[in-house]
Structure formats: structure tokens, C-alpha cells
Lab assay of single mutants.
Amino acid sequence: ENVVSAPMPGKVLRVLVRVGDRVRVGQGLLVLEAMKMENEIPSPRDGVVKRILVKEGEIVDTGQPKIELG
């Protein structure tokens, strides 16, 4: 899985990584606000952040790609 998608609709509060960052499985990639709760979205695997496809403040839909890992 190279693309991390939104598990639920919500607002991107914070992006916790930058392009080029090495990430580990379970590491937080971003914080999504859904139903007035903050949810940290974890990396599904070890890898390197290739692209960030969302911006802080953006509203995302379920299944929308957010971060691409290499």
C-alpha cells in the first residue's frame, strides 16, 4: 500500500511529516478531526514520504488519498 487514504471524512488539522521523511509503521502521519474528535492517522508500513496530497485545514472524504509512501 503506497497511498494512505482517509478512513473517515473530516478536516486535516495537522500534517506531522514532510516529503523525504522516513516513517515507521504506526508512526503518526497527520491529525484528522472527525465528529469533534482528533484522530492521528498512522503509517501502514515503513517507508519514505514521497508526496503529501492534502493541506492543513482541508476537508477530506472517506477513501481520499492523503499521503504517498515510497
Results as ranks from 00 to 15, higher is better:
residue 1 E to Q: 13
residue 2 N to R: 09
residue 2 N to I: 14
residue 2 N to H: 14
residue 2 N to F: 15
residue 2 N to L: 13
residue 3 V to M: 14
residue 3 V to R: 06
residue 4 V to Y: 04
residue 5 S to M: 12
residue 5 S to E: 08
residue 5 S to R: 15
residue 6 A to P: 04
residue 6 A to L: 07
residue 6 A to E: 04
residue 6 A to Y: 06
residue 7 P to E: 10
residue 7 P to Y: 09
residue 7 P to F: 10
residue 7 P to W: 10
residue 8 M to R: 09
residue 8 M to C: 11
residue 9 P to E: 07
residue 9 P to F: 10
residue 10 G to C: 08
residue 10 G to S: 05
residue 11 K to N: 03
residue 11 K to R: 12
residue 11 K to M: 10
residue 12 V to Q: 00
residue 12 V to P: 01
residue 13 L to H: 04
residue 13 L to Y: 03
residue 14 R to T: 06
residue 14 R to L: 07
residue 14 R to M: 07
residue 14 R to Q: 07
residue 14 R to Y: 08
residue 14 R to K: 12
residue 14 R to N: 04
residue 15 V to G: 01
residue 15 V to T: 02
residue 15 V to I: 15
residue 16 L to P: 03
residue 16 L to E: 02
residue 16 L to T: 04
residue 17 V to G: 00
residue 17 V to A: 01
residue 17 V to R: 00
residue 18 R to F: 08
residue 19 V to H: 04
residue 19 V to K: 06
residue 19 V to A: 07
residue 20 G to P: 01
residue 20 G to R: 04
residue 21 D to M: 08
residue 21 D to E: 12
residue 21 D to N: 05
residue 21 D to V: 06
residue 21 D to C: 09
residue 22 R to N: 10
residue 23 V to K: 01
residue 23 V to P: 00
residue 24 R to C: 12
residue 24 R to Y: 12
residue 24 R to P: 01
residue 26 G to R: 05
residue 26 G to I: 03
residue 26 G to E: 03
residue 27 Q to A: 05
residue 27 Q to Y: 04
residue 27 Q to G: 03
residue 28 G to M: 12
residue 28 G to Q: 06
residue 28 G to L: 14
residue 29 L to A: 00
residue 29 L to I: 06
residue 29 L to R: 00
residue 30 L to T: 03
residue 30 L to P: 00
residue 30 L to F: 14
residue 30 L to N: 00
residue 31 V to E: 01
residue 31 V to M: 06
residue 32 L to R: 00
residue 32 L to M: 12
residue 33 E to Q: 11
residue 33 E to T: 07
residue 34 A to D: 06
residue 34 A to E: 05
residue 35 M to D: 14
residue 35 M to V: 08
residue 35 M to E: 13
residue 35 M to G: 13
residue 35 M to N: 15
residue 36 K to H: 14
residue 36 K to E: 14
residue 36 K to D: 15
residue 36 K to Q: 14
residue 37 M to H: 10
residue 37 M to V: 12
residue 37 M to R: 13
residue 37 M to C: 11
residue 38 E to Q: 11
residue 39 N to H: 15
residue 39 N to C: 15
residue 40 E to W: 13
residue 40 E to P: 07
residue 40 E to L: 15
residue 40 E to H: 10
residue 41 I to L: 06
residue 41 I to N: 02
residue 41 I to H: 01
residue 42 P to W: 09
residue 42 P to M: 12
residue 42 P to H: 11
residue 42 P to I: 13
residue 43 S to N: 01
residue 44 P to R: 04
residue 44 P to V: 04
residue 45 R to K: 11
residue 45 R to S: 10
residue 45 R to T: 10
residue 46 D to I: 05
residue 46 D to R: 07
residue 46 D to C: 11
residue 47 G to V: 02
residue 48 V to C: 12
residue 48 V to Y: 14
residue 48 V to P: 02
residue 48 V to R: 07
residue 49 V to L: 00
residue 49 V to Y: 00
residue 49 V to E: 01
residue 51 R to M: 09
residue 51 R to L: 09
residue 51 R to Q: 10
residue 51 R to F: 08
residue 52 I to L: 06
residue 52 I to H: 02
residue 52 I to M: 02
residue 53 L to M: 12
residue 53 L to T: 03
residue 53 L to W: 12
residue 54 V to N: 01
residue 55 K to P: 01
residue 55 K to V: 12
residue 55 K to D: 07
residue 57 G to V: 03
residue 57 G to M: 06
residue 57 G to P: 00
residue 58 E to K: 03
residue 58 E to L: 04
residue 59 I to N: 10
residue 59 I to R: 11
residue 59 I to D: 10
residue 60 V to R: 01
residue 60 V to I: 08
residue 60 V to Q: 03
residue 60 V to H: 02
residue 61 D to G: 12
residue 61 D to P: 06
residue 62 T to P: 10
residue 62 T to I: 13
residue 62 T to Y: 12
residue 62 T to H: 09
residue 62 T to L: 12
residue 62 T to N: 08
residue 63 G to I: 04
residue 63 G to F: 08
residue 63 G to E: 06
residue 63 G to S: 07
residue 64 Q to C: 08
residue 64 Q to T: 11
residue 65 P to M: 08
residue 65 P to A: 12
residue 65 P to H: 09
residue 66 K to I: 15
residue 66 K to R: 04
residue 67 I to Y: 02
residue 67 I to S: 02
residue 67 I to E: 01
residue 68 E to M: 13
residue 68 E to R: 06
residue 69 L to Y: 04
residue 69 L to E: 02
residue 69 L to T: 02
residue 69 L to P: 00
residue 69 L to M: 06
residue 70 G to K: 12
